[in-house]
C-alpha cells in the first residue's frame, strides 16, 4: 500500500507552471522596459529586451526539458502501472505530454522577439 500523496498532480503540471512563469516574466520585462525607456539599452552586447527574453526562454526550455526527460526515463524504466499513489504510470505520461505542450507554447511565445520591435 502506497502513501496517499497529492504531489503527482502538481508534478504533472510542472511544464505548464514553467510556461506560466516564463510568460509572466517576459511580459512583465517588456512592459517595464517600454514604460521606463530601457528598451534602447543593451545587455551582453545585444538589445536588452530580446536578450532578456531569449535568456529566459533558454532557461524555461531547459527546465521543461529536464522535467520531460525525467518523465521519459521513468516511463522507459518500465513503470508497471502498479506504482501506487506516488508514481502512477498515467501521471508520469501526463507529465511528459504536458512538458511537450509547454515547450511548444514557450517556443512560440519567444518567436516574436526575433521579428517584432520591442516597444513600437
Amino acid at each position: 500500500m502506497q502513501v496517499a500523496g497529492f504531489s503527482p498532480i502538481p508534478a504533472a503540471l510542472a511544464g505548464l507552471i514553467v510556461w506560466a512563469a516564463h510568460f509572466g516574466l517576459i511580459y512583465g520585462a517588456n512592459a517595464v522596459a517600454c514604460a521606463r525607456g530601457l528598451a534602447g539599452g543593451r545587455w551582453l552586447g545585444l538589445p536588452l529586451v530580446p536578450a532578456l527574453v531569449l535568456g529566459l526562454t533558454a532557461l524555461a526550455l531547459l527546465a521543461v526539458a529536464v522535467i520531460g526527460l525525467r518523465a521519459w526515463q521513468r516511463l522507459e524504466g518500465g513503470l508497471s502501472g502498479q506504482e501506487g499513489e506516488n508514481e502512477p504510470r498515467f501521471m508520469v505520461w501526463l507529465t511528459l505530454a504536458i512538458a511537450l505542450l509547454s515547450a511548444l507554447a514557450i517556443l512560440w511565445e519567444a518567436l516574436p522577439v526575433l521579428l517584432v520591435p520591442a516597444c513600437a
Binding site: 512560440w108 518567436l111 516574436p112 521579428l115 517584432v116 520591435p117
Partner: peptide, 9 residues
C-alpha cells in the same frame, strides 16, 4: 505566426 508577425512589424 511568422507571417503575421511580419505584417505586424
Amino acid at each position: 505566426l511568422v507571417h503575421t508577425l511580419g505584417v505586424a512589424a
